[in-house]
Design a protein around this nucleic acid. Structure first.
Lengths: 237, 237
DNA sequence: ATATACAACTTATTATAACAAGTTAGATGC
DNA sequence: GCATCTAACTTGTTATAATAAGTTGTATAT
């Protein structure tokens, strides 16, 4: 749609350069005048592109000063962990990811908790199942659906012990912009108690999430079951 | 800051007119040409204002068609409900709010789940306890802390059956911009099972939330206990 | 040395203009 | 009647231009 416009090209170029680390965090991006000359476009085009970067929280603009490169934002809607006890430091946490089910192309589920967009229905979708462990304790089980938006080689990637969202950001330029969540508590059934190695009937958190990406009308869908006995879920938005 | 600019004035004007219901939902806003003539500004100014409305999710633009007025967006981080069964429509829900503890000025709690900002520590804080019921079923219990940022007459307001966030928005111009959440599941203890009228030990959702407002360094803090047997929590961000 | 003033940057606002591209409804042709 | 084309809308993109306003470092005056 907007892929062949100048401002969008410029936006993607700068986005890439920032994510690849070409500009040091906290330093200033080239000024609008410099960019103007470098990319042979005019000020409105530059400003349009920079505005998209501000929306991505990749830069912050300061009148009279310049555009400061921000640290890679912690993804909105992305879940992380926190120890339940006050003393436990998050730094100690040894996080592992076990892939239960390698990414496979599937068709869309029949009764999804969120209705896929039309654009998504026209695409294949990768399904992925994983368990995350903290200090060797299985903490949550997650099923993910990721629409195949030119995810070349996605199936061959090694997801163990890698942040899925880091991979999506660095390899495919996909970031999470917002999220919708449905949350409830549930007693662990047989399957989950086995998977997470907890007692049958102990309270777990269930979430169904739709993660809106920076690609229009493309979302990542996630179902998760979390054992929150010793760790809790942390989520910013 | 930007209050005396033309695009910002136009933005606020249109925002007000939309919220006040001057434009029917789903209909088209006046075209850019019409707005241009009505407000005596040029196209870039119009477009800048409309862009802010898009960010607010108050309108959606369609090339060649116009700007469609959207239903009032559910606030970021604000929790709403959804029936568990697919058939139940949210429209049927009869929502009530019971204030357990009227707003009172208190001092900051000793071991908060989130560290208050310095600015907040210099202010009083209102504490408020409420239970929300859906179709006469007690669904969640919430404790709220709201820093006293010139909330004149806040204690004398009637919060029953009113959306707290609507009040904050319309009377005090306070809106929620983002949120941090800590989530876990728990078995209901004696107090909660009594409050929410559920069985001892049934799984409930516990959340501690920090809601960032549009006032810099001012947050609203919320602790909640939710019975999600028949309804689930819904939260966008 | 320290404070002030200023020049040279930066981004922000606004106007004007021309053309591209999507949508819609009515006119036209069959 | 029905499909097609077209004219008249709509928003989207991009360029040029002038001015406002915030920031920073240097030169100047005290």
């Amino acid at each position: 749609m907007q892929k062949d416009t100048k401002y969008f090209e410029l936006y993607r170029s700068l986005q890439n350069r920032i994510i690849k680390g070409e500009f040091m965090l906290g330093t200033l991006l080239p000024s609008e005048t410099e960019l103007k000359q470098a990319y042979h476009v005019t000020q409105p085009t530059i400003r349009h592109a920079l505005e998209l970067l501000v929306n991505d929280r990749l830069i912050k603009k300061h009148q009279g000063k310049g555009s400061i490169v921000l640290p890679r934002p912690v993804g909105v809607g992305i879940i992380s962990f926190e120890g339940r006890s006050v003393t436990s430091q998050n730094d100690d946490l040894e996080i592992q990811t076990k892939i239960i089910c390698d990414p496979t192309k599937v068709s869309w589920p029949a009764n999804p908790p969120f209705i896929p967009t039309e654009k998504e229905l026209q695409l294949d979708v990768y399904q992925l199942e994983r368990i995350r462990t903290l200090n060797n304790e299985d903490v949550f089980f997650e099923k993910l659906w990721i629409p195949n938006v030119q995810l070349d080689g996605f199936c061959t990637l090694n997801f163990n012990n890698n942040s899925l969202y880091e991979i999506l950001a660095s390899l495919y330029n996909i970031t999470i912009k917002s999220s919708e969540q449905k949350i409830w508590a549930k007693a662990a059934d047989e399957r989950i108690s086995t998977l997470l190695n907890i007692e049958l009937g102990s309270p777990i958190v269930r979430m169904e999430r739709r993660l809106e990406t920076n690609i229009p009308n493309i979302n990542i869908y996630s179902s998760l079951w979390a054992n929150t006995e010793n760790y809790l879920l942390y989520c910013i938005s």
